[in-house]
Nucleic acid binder design. Structure first.
Lengths: 164, 164
DNA sequence: AAAAATAGTTGCATTTGTCCACTATTTGCC
DNA sequence: GGCAAATAGTGGACAAATGCAACTATTTTT
């Protein structure tokens, strides 16, 4: 039984039990907040809601011909979820799909003109949103956290240090 | 138009465009991974899936009589979502609810014996999971990230520095 | 030539989140 | 005292996202 505190009626009297020192708690919670904020800023933008659309669009834009399965790994979705996401974006005329000539199982993805335009529009928004949202953390510390999480992420998805 | 790279077929050839330097991307992505891992470890545990159950259980356990609306703030859910969460946990016989004597609009939440037991069981798991999951980040850095995120979180939900 | 692996699709069941309206209670103001 | 506004919680409807498992097509292994 942990230290007892009783009937808190405002958030200021609450301590978070073991979650106080649990990194996963903060990640999970901050995620909710950032995502909500981002969605708000992208309202109506065709890529609002849910992780993945933005990443997919940007990735296809900067890697023409990239495959669904590669994106899936990057955003940690399973293939079926990825497929649906792409389907959706094709319907919105953001992406185009074609079977790879060399690997007829696989597909190559390309942005449409509309997709390219949207990518260009979104890129600065996404960057700014992240900066703004975390603005109450000093720039330095932001960079620190990002640095650490970037390394963590890379290990997790199996990206090697060298990108080429 | 960003630097072009073409038809990557494996994740190692991919760069993340502007997301590479976007903290929100890492938060959102790591969130997916941590959450999945956590769910896996808690499989069948009555509190698996979705943010909130764990926090709610632990919070009620260590703050007997706490109100739904306070928890809602902490986990950033709206009241209706919170209500449903609690309903669910009551059905599972983890929590008990009673109207506050002094504030008949409000409710006080308490754990049932079963809930207390589960809380005790979960506490170490949650802590360990977080440590394990982030184990490829040095302890020191883990602490650093947590420290920064904790402050961010506190500001965000409006917790003052002093916990009374 | 058969078996196994890979890429993608489809259907289904479950969850979740959000929006909005509704009740009950309390507080504040005149 | 009495009315209006704020607060706590409930309930319904609806749109999405998620995960699982089964299924097709293509390539690779053996």
């Amino acid at each position: 039984m942990p230290k007892m505190m009783s009937k808190p009626t405002t958030i200021e009297h609450v301590d978070l039990d073991v979650l106080e020192d649990t990194l996963s708690f903060y990640i999970r919670t901050m995620n909710i907040a950032v995502s909500r904020d981002l969605d708000a800023r992208l309202d109506g933008c065709d890529v609002a809601r849910g992780t993945g659309k933005i990443t997919t669009l940007l990735l296809v834009d900067s890697h023409p011909g990239i495959r669904p399965s590669v994106i899936a790994q990057i955003i940690m979705k399973d293939r079926s979820a990825m497929g649906r996401l792409i389907e959706q974006m094709i319907e919105h005329d953001l992406l185009r799909r074609q079977t790879s000539a060399s690997e007829r199982r696989a597909q190559e993805l390309y942005v449409t003109p509309k997709g390219a335009e949207l990518a260009a529009m979104i890129r600065p928004i996404v960057t700014k949103q992240s900066k703004d949202f975390f603005s109450f953390i000093a720039e330095e510390e932001q960079a620190q956290v990002m640095d650490i999480l970037r390394r963590a992420y890379r290990k997790m998805v199996g990206m090697t240090g060298e990108k080429r």
